[in-house]
């Protein structure tokens, strides 16, 4: 179908970076983890910092991320990645230590490590993938599961009287003096991928300048856990996640650019529409 005259090395405009290995990812079809891995790997590649990068894998779906990133990697216990990263970056101050964590890992079991690493202003990057569910264990409720959103442990939808409210931890860490750059991104469209990549680049550059903690949330999907096709899940995310987890920068160069207001906390309390 394609024109063989076009497929030549000199016409190449896009290919998978070598900072990702050729190991086939175990993620479900359409899972954004692969896309987010690639965004981070592309930035490491473009900045030429592969030899300085040390990644920390979490417990959760991305527990095996170390097989896919072609950089040195350490697998942490559940929730403890920011503690590992704090030590590693202090022991290797000119390296680029980053964590890659899900919502359960970062915002439930690892809340203390997250808050304190951010508050100390550790010169690390925290990549936070928020798909509002525990994917690896089979779709249970996460701290970020929306009100009314069904999960394996909230089959009738998240109920506030039983489970409390969704945790907007990204807004929370933005309040801490140690965070320098806090932003919320997504990776479901080419435009969003471009913006997310610019954010990741900014985070690595800030780290090189030793500015403190860089925190990037990726609002994400779990089509298996949400029981949708990948394309439907992306649409559901745009309809239901984006109004509550609003995309864009929250803190830039140590200054809050989108203050948290009572409207935000009202919105997070709204029930989501479930088909």
């Amino acid at each position: 179908m394609f024109n063989e005259e076009i497929v030549k090395p000199e016409n190449l405009v896009y290919k998978k970076t070598d900072v990702l290995t050729d190991v086939v990812m175990h993620y479900c079809p359409g899972c954004p983890h692969g896309t987010i891995h690639r965004i981070i790997a592309e930035v490491i590649d473009e900045m030429g910092i592969q030899d300085k990068a040390i990644g920390i894998a979490p417990v959760g779906c991305s527990v095996l991320a170390y097989n896919y990133f072609n950089v040195d990697f350490v697998e942490a216990a559940h929730g403890r990645a920011p503690a590992l990263a704090s030590a590693i970056q202090r022991l290797h101050p000119n390296h680029h230590t980053f964590t890659y964590q899900g919502d359960g890992d970062l915002a439930a079991i690892g809340t203390a490590e997250t808050i304190h690493a951010c508050n100390r202003g550790e010169n690390i990057i925290i990549f936070f993938v928020n798909n509002a569910i525990y994917g690896m264990t089979g779709g249970q409720m996460a701290p970020t599961t929306l009100v009314g959103m069904p999960s394996a442990t909230t089959p009738y939808g998240r109920r506030v009287d039983l489970n409390g409210w969704p945790l907007q931890i990204t807004e929370l860490v933005a309040q801490l003096p140690g965070t320098y750059y806090v932003t919320r991104q997504s990776a479901s469209t080419a435009a969003d991928v471009r913006k997310a990549k610019a954010a990741v680049r900014k985070a690595f550059e800030n780290q090189a300048a030793k500015k403190g903690t860089q925190f990037i949330e990726f609002v994400s999907t779990c089509n298996s856990g949400w029981k949708m096709t990948p394309v439907q899940a992306n649409e559901w995310m745009r309809q239901n996640m984006f109004p509550k987890y609003v995309l864009g920068d929250i803190k830039l160069e140590g200054e809050i650019v989108r203050p948290y207001n009572p409207e935000d906390s009202k919105v997070i309390r709204d029930l989501v529409s479930v088909k």
Binding site: V74, A76, A77, R80, A83, L91
Partner: peptide
């Protein structure tokens, strides 16, 4: 030598895990 007072014993031991993973004496 780096010395850090952590937020808990849980964090302390995981900082040791991180540092040790990079070949440092921690």
């Amino acid at each position: 030598m780096v010395v850090l007072q952590a937020e808990s014993e849980v964090a302390s031991i995981n900082m040791v895990y991180g540092g040790a993973a990079t070949g440092k004496k921690v």
